[in-house]
Amino acid sequence: MRNAWTVAKREFNMYFASPVAYAVAFGLLLVQGLFFYADFGSSVLFGAPPDPTRSVSLFVTLLLFFAPAITMRLMAEEQRTGTLELLLTAPVREWELVTGKWLAAFGFVGLLVILNATYAVILSRFVTPGLDVGSLAAAYVGLFLAAGAMLAIGVFGSSLFSNQIAAFFAIMGLVLVMWVISYPVQNETGLLASVLKHLSFSDHYYTNFLSGVVNLTDVVYFVTVIVLFLFLAARVVESRRWR
């Protein structure tokens, strides 16, 4: 675990040494800012109470596109430049390596979430009698879990390639599939439909977290996805040894 922390620290710092992270943060915050402004403005115009979870759900939607950008580099770059060889000949286990990478990405997204939380703080100053902190907290818990799952898929996708662009599209494809997997069976019942609904990101995120409910099933689901994809990533890294 100590090694995972070492890898995570380095990787986290590297986010700020590369322009990609700043570009990602800029894009993410810009879109969120615009939407917040529009939301806020329309609330004022029509006198309707603003929904504080809007900026959270928007963040999750944007992560569909930004999580691949944040994670594509993590393993792919190590493989392209050959630095993976030095990591794997140091006394580091594969799972420590991928966990460290994931922690770094999670930390970076955590930072962006803190910036995102300023919108809630701003809103709370204008809304009387104040925001529904409980439902907002549930939305944020869901955001962290969904982000963690997307980033774990990202680490896995990145480990498959030594080309960042290829990794980007593979990750985006995987995340999108996980997101929409239940869309075709939205109005169906039966075994297949219920299996697909259980597998889907959106069914676990939108139906509960966003309506203020933290369900153990949903928490377990996202944690399972994180563990599963990190496990797969470790196996992919290990399989590189056998080629």
Binding site: N3, T6, V7, T81, G82, E85, L86, T89, P91, V92
Partner: peptide, 28 residues
């Protein structure tokens, strides 16, 4: 084992001391 691979793969965006510190931490 200490290993110097062919072509010396290093992290270009790190300074020498940062890099060595990282490797030292990894090797405890």
């Amino acid at each position: 084992v200490g290993y110097l691979p062919e072509n010396v793969p290093l992290y270009p965006e790190m300074s020498v001391v940062q890099y060595l510190d990282f490797m030292a931490e990894l090797r405890q």
